[in-house]
Design a protein around this nucleic acid. Structure first.
Length: 109
DNA sequence: TAGTTGACGACGG
DNA sequence: TCCGTCGCCAACT
């Protein structure tokens, strides 16, 4: 059953616990996509598949909310993150290094 | 069918 | 250390 390539991305994104964030490259590497752009591109269509996907928890490698431009509201992404306890400053996640969640953690115990 | 796009990442200057 | 360029790889037009 070859679900859409994005489905794999969405599945990983849904695994991201509240209050934590993940990066495109990390997900891409975890899925073996090899291209972080694929992840971002997949999330772009995530809205078409449903808002069930916490795409706001996915940021770029620098911890910047690079995808907020594609959200219904420019502040929507930040609001969602702050709602989960994540501090966002200048469109960037504070303590990003500490809030960074890795897909393989979901497999680890 | 072929070309361009795209929410990024890594490397070079 | 910061800015710019090239590469990924599948979907959309």
């Amino acid at each position: 059953m070859k679900e859409h390539y994005f489905q794999m991305v969405y599945d990983v994104v849904r695994l991201i616990p509240p209050g934590r964030v993940c990066t495109y490259g990390l997900i891409a590497d975890f899925l073996g996509l090899g291209s972080a752009r694929m992840v971002g591109w997949a999330l772009n269509k995530s809205f078409s598949y449903g808002t069930d996907i916490p795409a706001h928890r996915v940021v770029n490698r620098k911890g910047e909310l690079s995808g907020r431009n594609h959200f219904p509201g420019s502040e929507m992404m930040q609001q969602l993150l702050e709602n989960e306890g994540i501090v966002v400053t200048t469109d960037k996640v504070r303590d990003f290094d500490k809030l960074l969640w890795k897909p393989h953690e979901s497999q680890n115990t």
